[in-house]
Structure formats: structure tokens, C-alpha cells
Amino acid sequence: MSSQRLTLREAVIEAIDLEMERDPNIVMLGQDIGEFGGPLQSTMGLWERYGDSRIIETPVAEQGVVALGIGMSLNGLRPIIDLMFADFLPLVANELLQLATNLNYMSNGKARAPFVLRTRGGDGPYRAHPQNMEALLSNIPGLCVVTPGSPVAAKGLMVSAMRSDDPVVYIEPIFLYQGPKEAVPTEQYAIPLGVAAVPRTGGDVTLVCYGRTVRVMQLAAAKLGKEGIDCEIVDLQTVTPFDRETVINSAKKTRRLVVAHDAWMNCGVGAEIVATVTGEVDLAARPIRLAAPNLPIAYAPVLRDNSRPTVDNVVEAVTRMFH
């Protein structure tokens, strides 16, 4: 099986490229996605291959554009709507949370909206658009929210998102965007939505994560391994609806749970995971959530860096559980 070393950004583009070649109903909508190559080079090469008729540039009108894409998905197309950054998700909250999410159920299955809203979220080297909005989207039934934690996951999850018959919000973590490369299979493959990955198995503690914190957990697990603590990592991949079975089974095995995400702790995804697990599993230690403090995200690096869970935070939290 051939593969190529790609960044997460390149892996997403490759998934879109191969799928657009396969399915003529896929078109992309967004700002600066043509000759410019997309925000953070997120569409590099696509306009050259598919031209203006399928890589459709739009005005700066996020609500109108998202609704446009939703309507297009109701009439035979499978649009990918490129929303520049996750900071803009609240702008289109109405279109996502009261329109897209409702269509299938409220129409009794007659109006399905197969579109992908792709955006970029979280802090990163670029440092300009740091917001994490997945918890807002996760509260509403009917929306699938995906965040890849590696290039391999990024490609396979984007393929499933494009093939889904219902709306998917696909959040690309900016921190990993131009980050470590990985050998990504050249042919097209799909990683199912709603299924978590277990990139590391272990018997002592379950580390639940997604997006950037997958990398944090991996580095922390390596450190903890040296101290004799055997970590199991559960990468949610699909944040909502999350894979209850994999998370619960892992927690049943290890009886210890740490959840880490870059988004705020208050009413966050971690709260849902902890509530779900503690409802089903007798844990040997109190579960720990690591997340952003309940403050807006500041600009000064010294302030901002303090808002993200770090490898040391995870090591310290896990170590505490065993004492």
C-alpha cells in the first residue's frame, strides 16, 4: 500500500481532491478558496484542478453562504462550505443549530442536508483565531462534529463527512495544521463517523481527547510509561455524537479517567464524557477534566499558553490519581 508523508492540512486537501474527482456533486463554497489557495492554504491546488464552477468563491457573508450551502445540499449537491475560522461559528449558529440540525427529523426524513462545514479552530503558531466552539454545537441534536487529531485521521474522517447524508461540522485544529507529518495512505479510505480511535492501549488510566490534545496525550503517555503507568488513549475523532461504547469499555478496564480539551471546561465536552462514564462505571479515582479556564482567551503568549492543557498538566493529573 503506497503512502505519502503529509501534514494534517495536506491530508484534508487530498481527501477532498480525490472525492471531488469521484463525485461530481461535490462543490466548495467559501471566501478566498480560489487562486489564493484558501485560508491557511487550506484549498491549495483545488481551484487549479476544478475551476470556478466547483470551487465557488463567495462574498464575506457567512450566514447567507452557510444557508446557501444548506439549500444546495437539499437540491442534489454535496457542498463543502469553507468557514474560514471557528471564531465565525457563532455567526452562523442559527443556520447550523436551528436549520441544518432540524431538517431531517422535522421533515420526517424528507429533507436531508448532506453538507460539510469545514473550519479551522483553536490556537496555533499563527495565534490569531483561537476559539474552540465545539461545545456550543454539541448541545443540539442532529449535528455531527468531527475534529481529527492526526493526518491519517484527517483524511479518513473528511471522506466520511463528505459521504454523510446529514450535516457534519469538521473542525481542523490549527495547532496541528502544518504540524508533524505522517505517512498517509495514497488511496481514498473512510474512517467512520461516531467511532473513536484507540491509538495506544493500556490498563491503568483512560485518557480521552480529540484534536490537538491527542498529541498532548501521546506525549504525556510516553512520559508516564517511563514511570510505570500504562495509559490508554481514546481519540474521540467524532466529538458529537461521541463513541460511548469505546469510552465506557476503556474506563471499565482502567477505572481511571482523564479528559483533556482546549475548549472551556464549563459545560464542555469533558463534562458530558465524565457524566456518561460515572453513570456506568465505578471508577477507582475521581475523574479529572483538563480544559481552558473560564476566561476569554488572551493574546499575550504567557497568558494564552496557560489556557491550554499541557503535557505536564496531564502527567501531574495522572500521577495524582495514583497517590
Binding site: 446557501l68 450551502g69 444548506i70 437539499l74
Partner: peptide, 12 residues
């Protein structure tokens, strides 16, 4: 939202 998504029906 229906005005705007209706516009999308026509776009498709």
C-alpha cells in the same frame, strides 16, 4: 433562514 436556504435551492 428559509429565504437564504431557498436561494441555495436555486444555486444548485
Amino acid at each position: 433562514p428559509n429565504v437564504s436556504s431557498g436561494t441555495g435551492l436555486a444555486m444548485a
